[in-house]
């Protein structure tokens, strides 16, 4: 469709998508055609533009949510793949939680882990014991930290999140594990 638009613009035929946004949902197989008007207040192409040259786009796009917490706060609650391997190898009774979603669990998982998807994490919390030593992991280490904070809010204390997630684990600890 983008290609057709290019060709129409070059040859000068048909009606292009200038002034329209076409939305496509391939699961419902539906198309929506939304009118987009020129914004007279647009910083770039409006009536009194304030942007007169290219800017720093990384800075422009790196605006964070005010609630986002700095990453260094998290480091104390992280454990590396090799460290986690050592813990698991001792054979002591620890709880290992995989907070990814079921379709990811189907692809790969760490032995001894139990599936507690972040999307339903609250429902698993009452089943966990605050006295236990709990390790959490996800794909890259972000969701497991979110889950860890939820457990902290419920008074859990012995918590670690696997830094780099199962993807880092596959790379550093278990090279035979399939990656995605």
């Amino acid at each position: 469709m983008m290609g057709t638009e290019v060709i129409k613009l070059i040859i000068g035929i048909g009606d292009t998508l200038v002034g329209r946004l076409l939305l496509y949902d391939s699961l419902r197989m539906s198309f929506k055609d939304v009118k987009v008007r020129r914004n007279p207040g647009c910083e770039l192409c409006g009536d009194s533009p304030t942007l007169t040259e290219l800017v720093d786009y990384e800075a422009f796009c790196s605006v964070d949510l005010p609630s986002a917490e700095p990453e260094q706060d998290n480091v104390a609650f992280e454990i590396s793949g090799p460290e986690l391997k050592k813990v698991l190898d001792t054979g002591r009774p620890v709880t290992l939680l995989d907070v990814r979603e079921p379709h990811e669990w189907e692809i790969n998982r760490i032995d001894r882990a139990q599936l507690t998807p972040l999307s339903q994490f609250e429902s698993f919390i009452p089943k966990l014991n605050p006295e236990d030593e709990i390790y959490l992991y996800c794909y890259k280490g972000k969701r497991s930290m979110t889950a860890l904070k939820k457990l902290q809010d419920h008074g859990f204390q012995q918590l670690k999140s696997l830094s780099g997630g199962i993807d880092g684990w596959a790379e550093q600890v278990e090279p035979s594990m399939p990656r995605y």
Partner: peptide, 10 residues
Amino acid sequence: FEGQISVFDP
């Protein structure tokens, strides 16, 4: 599964 397309030509 979703996409959007437009042509911008001020």
